[in-house]
């Protein structure tokens, strides 16, 4: 073999990150959680979409917003499709992926407006849960966006990724990570 593949050497080789962010003129890899905490600007999603996404993500899985769900999705909408790590690519949605999320979030807000006269993020937690439960099963009347159950599945998977799919997430669940090549930054 050309490469030293002993586990110890591979652990040293981990050098990638999740979000390549320009910080003070130099690019460095950040976890989504840190990118959010440091309020790095979004690349693709506008402020309205981010607010809706964080509210949706928190409804899907508490902790998703703080874990940087919006930065994670936004960054991976900004990179070329082969570099995107979003689970959406497994769902055979043709790239680019940004319209899928933008249209889905707009549909979510519009649906909330139609039902309750306010945006999704402005609803009570209980009401958000009712709406998410409904869209997880089928397109509600008047829904204008990607298929609602598919949108639910994709963003839920993203929330699960940032909350559970990291070294930190494994630790919180008590699951040994046991890497061959460790992802960086405990993202």
């Amino acid at each position: 073999m050309q490469t030293d593949t002993r586990r110890r050497s591979l652990l040293k080789a981990g050098g990638l990150g999740l979000l390549l962010i320009n910080v003070d003129g130099a690019e460095r890899w950040l976890s989504p959680r840190v990118a959010r905490a440091e309020t790095h600007p979004y690349r693709v999603l506008d402020a309205t979409a981010v607010v809706a996404l964080e509210a949706f993500g928190e409804t899907l899985l508490a902790g998703a917003a703080e874990a940087g769900l919006a930065h994670y999705i936004d960054y991976h909408l900004s990179v070329p499709a082969p570099d995107s790590l979003l689970l959406l690519r497994y769902l055979d949605a043709p790239p680019p992926y940004a319209p899928f999320y933008q249209a889905g979030l707009a549909a979510l807000d519009n649906h909330a407006q139609a039902l309750d006269g306010m945006r999704f993020s402005e609803l009570t937690a209980e009401r958000r849960t009712e709406i998410v439960s409904a869209i997880s099963a089928e397109n509600p009347a008047g829904w204008q966006g990607p298929p609602a159950p598919l949108f639910y599945f994709a963003v839920r998977a993203d929330a699960v990724d940032v909350v559970y799919g990291t070294v930190e997430g494994f630790e919180k669940l008590g699951v040994p990570y046991m890497p061959h090549i460790l992802p960086p930054s405990k993202w």
Partner: peptide, 27 residues
Amino acid sequence: AGRPWQLSDLVSSQIWARRLKWLAAVA
């Protein structure tokens, strides 16, 4: 068409693993 993967690219992560997969050329 894809990339020249090496063993050191095989990061232990279900998220990173997605880079290895095909991008469907299906309309």
